[in-house]
Write a protein that binds this DNA or RNA. Structure first.
Lengths: 231, 231
DNA sequence: CGACGTGTTGAGGACACTCAAGAATAGTGG
DNA sequence: CCACTATTCTTGAGTGTCCTCAACACGTCG
C-alpha cells in the first residue's frame, strides 16, 4: 500500500507552539513547550501508515493539517475505526509501551510529534504534565464509551446522524462541512457498510436535512431534525 | 427500581489493604494505603445503583465481592453495558467531575471506596500515584478499544466466544465459570438480544465446546475451538 | 404449591448486508 | 486541454443474520 518507507521523522525542531485551527492553549501545547521536550513536524501522504498496532510507542502526535484514522483489524480484514483525528487533536498517546491501534493519514497530513521518552521524563517530575497526560487519555476514554453505545445499540440512521453532528461540531467552517474521509471509512467507524452509509446520507438529502455540494461537501440544513433522528 | 435509598456510605474505616481474590499489590491498593487517603467498605444489594450517569464523582470504587455493571442508556431504554467489574477491579474513576456511566450491583456486592478528593490531593504531590491513576484509565481505554471492535465488526457467535474467553480468564475457578450476570446483561454488553445470546450458548453446548452445570455455571471443554470461533 | 424471575426455543419479519451495475469524480498521461 | 483510467459514490435487487414476539420450561422463594 505504501510506496515510500518512513524511517525516522526529520529532526526539524519545532520553533514554537503554533498550529492552524488549534487553540493557542491546549494541554499538548503546554507539554510540548516544556523544557526538555523535543517537538518536530512531519508529513504523510494519503493512506500512509503513521504507526502500526503493536509497534513501540516512540512518539506522541498532534494533527496540524489533514486528518488521521486509528483502527483495529480482525484477521479476515474487517476493520473498526476507533476515531478520526482532526487538526488540533492528539493521538498515539498509548499509556503502555506499544500502540493499541494502527494510525494512517487519511489525506495529505502534517503532524507535530513529541518523543514519548522526553514526555515521560517530564511527567516524572512535573505533576501538571502528568495530569494533562491523564486528562488526554480520559478524553479518549469518554469518546470510546460514547462510541460503544453507538456501535452496540444505535440503528444505521441514528449512527449516521450522530456522525454528522460530531463532524459538524468538530470541523464545520462557515456552515459547510468538508469530510476528509471516504464512505468506507465512515462505515468502518460506525459499524456499517459503505452502501448503508450512502443510503442514509441520500435519505437525509431527500428529506432536506442536508445538502450536498459534492459527495464530501455537506451543509446541514436542519440540525434539530438531525438531532431528533439521533437517539 | 431501588427500594432502599443510599445516602452516604458508612464511614467504617478500612483497616488494611486486603480483599478476597485481589492480588496483594495492585495500583489501587498502593493508592488506598497512602497517608491521607480514606478508604471504607460498603455493600449493595442486587440491582442497586451505586452511582448514576451525570452524578458528581465523589468516590472511586474497588470490587471486593460480587460484580458490577457500568452502562449508558438511550432515551428509549436501549442499554449498552461498557464493562463488568469483578473482584479486584476498580471502577468509577472518571477523570472529569461527573460519572460518564451508571454503575449497578449485579448481585449482592461489597466494594471498597476511596474519596476522590483525597485521591486528587495525593496525586497532586505524589507522582507515583498520579501515574497509577493514568494507568488505570489507560487500562479502561484499552478495554473499550477492544470492545468497539467487537461491537462494530464481530458476528453474534464471535461476540459470545469472545465474552466466554474473557470471563474464563477473569473469573474461572477450578475450570468452572460462575457467571454473575443474566442473559440480558450479556446481550447488552455484546450488542445483542438475550435470545441471541441464549441461542449461541446452546449451539456451543450442542457442539460440545462447553457444558452447563446450570444456566450460569459453565465449564469450557475446548478453549481452542472457542478461540477459533472468535475472529 | 403458586408466583415470579430467568432461560430456552420456535416462527416470522425487518434491517442491514452482499452482490452488481452504473454514475460521478478525481487522477493520469498524451 | 482532453481523453482515458481508476477510484469513489450511488442505487437496485435479493439474501441472511439477528431481532421481535410468543410460548413454554426451569428453578427459586415466598
Amino acid at each position: 500500500m505504501l510506496t515510500q518507507t518512513i524511517t525516522a521523522p526529520a529532526a526539524k525542531v519545532f520553533p514554537a507552539p503554533r498550529a492552524q485551527n488549534v487553540p493557542a492553549i491546549d494541554p499538548f501545547s503546554v507539554i510540548a513547550s516544556c523544557a526538555g521536550v523535543i517537538a518536530s513536524e512531519f508529513s504523510y501522504r494519503k493512506d500512509e501508515e503513521i504507526y502500526g498496532e503493536g509497534e513501540l510507542c516512540e512518539y506522541v502526535y498532534q494533527v496540524i493539517r489533514g486528518a488521521v484514522r486509528t483502527y483495529k483489524l480482525l484477521n479476515d480484514g474487517r476493520r473498526q475505526i476507533g476515531a478520526f483525528h482532526l487538526p488540533g487533536d492528539v493521538f498515539g498517546l498509548d499509556a503502555g509501551s506499544t500502540h493499541r491501534l494502527t494510525a494512517e493519514a487519511i489525506g495529505e497530513t502534517t503532524v507535530r510529534l513529541v518523543k514519548r521518552r522526553s514526555l515521560e521524563a517530564v511527567a516524572g517530575s512535573n505533576v501538571q504534565v502528568a495530569h494533562n497526560l491523564w486528562m488526554m487519555t480520559a478524553s479518549d476514554l469518554r469518546h470510546a464509551e460514547d462510541h460503544m453505545l453507538l456501535l452496540g445499540r444505535k440503528t444505521a440512521m441514528e449512527k449516521v446522524a450522530t456522525f454528522l453532528l460530531e463532524m459538524d461540531r468538530r470541523l464545520a467552517k462557515a456552515g459547510m462541512m468538508a469530510l476528509p474521509m471516504c464512505r468506507r471509512d465512515i462505515g468502518d467507524y460506525l459499524g456499517l457498510t459503505l452502501e448503508t452509509v450512502s443510503r442514509a446520507l441520500s435519505q437525509l438529502s431527500d428529506q432536506g436535512i442536508l445538502v450536498f455540494s459534492s459527495a464530501r461537501q455537506i451543509v446541514l440544513r436542519n440540525r434539530q431534525r438531525l438531532a431528533d433522528l439521533d437517539a
